[in-house]
Write a protein that binds this DNA or RNA. Structure first.
Lengths: 148, 148
DNA sequence: TATTGTTATACTCTATAACTATA
DNA sequence: TATAGTTATAGAGTATAACAATA
């Protein structure tokens, strides 16, 4: 039942993740963002236009969902729909100034470490960071935009 | 922008978390579980009755939602509603045999480490595990059932 | 009176399928 | 014909408020 050391470490991280789930939701709520809206914002980097389809891929959901998510973000003045330069079927999404501000606020709130991690010694934290870097290097996530 | 070593480590873990999101959903889907149903099942330990209210607290959602989640789990034959021994207002939820099986399958699927972690050396994984244990000990999550 | 679970309502997110306007 | 985005539909999850049965 214990499994390899790697699996044990993974289960330990899993616990942390589930324990932090509420925080993601709560931080979003304080900023007026539903969960998927927050994640969508995370993928929309300031100044970089993204097509609806690209966002759908990033969110791993159907194109049709992105229509609604973009609608709601646009209704809150966080993004703008703009025509594509060369293909008139395509629409791109761009963060507004307000959108960029909310996005930064969300990232800032989430970037503070949870109590357990925050209480680690600098040496432990540095070791942890080092090991995670090695893990990330061993299995780079192809579809993801590196935030760190 | 970099922050303390603890914050850097946290952001690194955050990346891993978001990258693994789809896996949680996909594994649930293969077993016919919507995301919250999977999480509910996670909290329902075999042989231990849980009241609707307790589950609502564990899921950090309103009691009214648990009614629907329990309805759907019951419709799939995974849980049973039973009266409480001493308080007739209360209903308890108990895993069925099928429910316990699905729950075990879900846990088993999720417990295998993702590629990056799996490729760590035993020494790295053991160090990681050790540090995570220290972090968990420093900030025990009050509301959570320890799975590990 | 207070509490447990339910119902009613309204909004968000999800996938599928049909539609439109382009290509 | 194929593709990008939209609309329509149906199911799941969410919070709030009102309700029944019980405490």
């Amino acid at each position: 039942m214990k499994g390899s050391v790697q699996e044990q470490a993974w289960r330990c991280l899993l616990e942390l993740f589930f324990a932090q789930r509420d925080r993601f939701i709560a931080v979003g709520q304080e900023l007026g963002l539903a969960p998927q809206q927050a994640i969508a914002l995370k993928h929309l980097e300031p100044g970089r236009a993204m097509t609806m389809g690209e966002l759908a891929q990033a969110l791993h959901c159907d194109n049709s969902n992105v229509t609604g998510i973009a609608d709601r973000l646009e209704a809150h003045g966080l993004v703008e729909r703009r025509p594509h330069a060369s293909d008139r079927r395509v629409k791109t999404l761009v963060l507004t100034t307000k959108g960029a501000k909310i996005r930064a606020a969300y990232e800032a709130r989430l970037s503070s470490a949870p109590p357990g991690l925050a209480s680690l010694s600098d040496a432990d934290a540095a070791t942890l960071l080092d090991i995670m870097h090695r893990a990330a290097a061993a299995a780079p996530d192809p579809g993801r935009t590196p935030t760190a």
